[in-house]
C-alpha cells in the first residue's frame, strides 16, 4: 500500500493551513531572549576603541557557528529576521558564513533585503543597490548564540542591549 502519491487534498489543505496559522498567530510571541546577564559578565573583557576625544567601550561575544546568520532589515528585533546561509552545492549542508556583515550586505545590494521589510524579496538581476552601514551583534536563539546583522553603526548592538559579535 504505497501512499507516496497521496496528498492532503489541496483545497482543504490550504484552508487548514490558514486556520492553523491564524490560530497560532493570535498568541503572543515569546520575547526574544537577550542575555543581559552575559553582557554584564563580559564587559570586564571589553575592548577599548579610541575615538576622537573619548574612549568608547564595546563588549564582544564570540560565536563560532555562523552557518545561519540572521539579517535584520531595521535596527529593531521586533520583526522576523531573514536567514542567510551558504552552501557549496545545492544539496550540501550549510557552510560557515565567514563574513556575516558582507553576506547580509550582498543581500542588501541585490535588493533581497529592503529597509523595514521582513520578507525576503526576489533578487534584482544586476542590481547594485546601496548597502546601509551594518553591524554584527549576538542574540540568543533557544539555548545557543547566533549572529544577527543589524543596520546601524558601531553603537547599534549596545542600543539593542546586545553584544557585538566576534569570531
Amino acid at each position: 500500500m504505497s501512499l507516496d502519491d497521496q496528498y492532503f487534498p489541496a483545497t482543504r489543505r490550504a484552508l487548514t493551513r490558514e486556520v492553523i496559522v491564524d490560530a497560532v498567530d493570535t498568541r503572543p510571541a515569546e520575547p526574544r531572549r537577550v542575555r543581559t546577564a552575559t553582557v554584564l559578565a563580559i564587559v570586564a573583557g571589553a575592548v577599548a576603541i579610541p575615538t576622537a576625544g573619548a574612549t568608547a567601550y564595546y563588549a564582544f561575544a564570540p560565536v563560532e557557528d555562523t552557518r545561519y546568520v540572521r539579517c535584520f532589515t531595521s535596527a529593531s528585533l521586533s520583526g522576523d529576521a531573514i536567514f542567510l546561509s551558504r552552501a557549496n552545492a545545492p544539496n550540501d549542508p550549510p557552510a560557515i558564513v565567514e563574513n556575516p556583515v558582507a553576506g547580509c550586505g550582498d543581500l542588501w545590494s541585490q535588493g533581497v533585503l529592503l529597509p523595514g521589510v521582513t520578507d525576503a524579496q526576489p533578487p534584482t538581476p544586476g542590481a547594485n543597490l546601496p548597502v546601509p552601514e551594518l553591524s554584527a551583534c549576538v542574540i540568543a536563539d533557544g539555548d545557543r548564540d547566533v549572529v544577527a546583522v543589524v543596520p546601524g553603526g558601531v553603537d547599534v548592538c549596545a542600543q539593542l542591549g546586545l553584544l557585538r559579535w566576534q569570531r
Binding site: 492553523i20 496559522v21 498567530d25 498568541r27 522576523d80 533557544g142
Partner: peptide, 9 residues
C-alpha cells in the same frame, strides 16, 4: 520557537 506563525506555516 520565537513565535513566528509565518515560519510555522
Amino acid at each position: 520557537a520565537r513565535g513566528s506563525a509565518a515560519a510555522f506555516g
